[in-house]
Design a binder for these strands. Structure first.
Lengths: 107, 107
DNA sequence: CAGCATCCGAGAAGATACTG
DNA sequence: CAGTATCTTCTCGGATGCTG
């Protein structure tokens, strides 16, 4: 897998945020994620989850009940992304250590 | 800085790829990057570089010469992103360790 | 509850041509 | 060399309504 392909997996406005809420083996229902990610629409949530599923990053489990229940969790491969996410978050926190950078936020 | 804001800095098709070619203190000219990133247009390269500059991630240095020369390098804050990038690449390489994932690549 | 279908607008990205 | 300008195309994301 080349650099571009790797980055492509994480592209889009919501993917990383969704993954963030699935880390550490957390299992989330559709409605959980909807609540945890303010501003996301059902459409985008469903769409991105499908894409993550196709990319082998999350597992989708359907329980045939009434009312329906579906939950999502990371695959083993998805879990492997954790260190990467951690690193991104860590260095985001450190931004304040660089005054020149902190002052130049875009609108 | 919250999670979303952090991820927003890395959004877009080209940003991560550009950063990738500036890691380890590498200094690149516009034409270098153009060559290193097949498929990118001058427009997108210039646009993304400007954005990275505004976000305080890269530094743009103009040499008033003929022919003109401009080079780009990471700021201190930009360097701080390295571990995150590394982690992403590392775990991309490890994808083959997870057969179920490797078999489900999207078109 | 967990979605899919449809329509819409905005912004991203691409092609091409031109300039200091 | 290192861009800008313009135009077109495409994809993303949002709004709304419907279904098993």
């Amino acid at each position: 897998m080349d650099v571009e392909a790797a980055f492509k997996l994480l592209e889009g406005r919501w993917k990383l945020v969704i993954l963030f809420h699935l880390f550490g083996g957390q299992v989330r229902r559709f409605s959980d994620l909807e609540r945890l990610i303010p501003g996301i629409t059902q459409k985008m949530l469903a769409q991105q989850l499908r894409r993550l599923e196709e990319d082998g990053i999350v597992t989708r489990t359907v329980y045939h009940q009434v009312p329906p229940k579906v939950d999502y969790r990371l695959t083993d491969w998805g879990q492997a992304l954790c260190p990467a996410m951690d690193a991104i978050l860590k260095c985001a926190e450190r931004r304040e250590d660089f005054p020149s950078a902190a002052s130049s936020a875009r609108a």
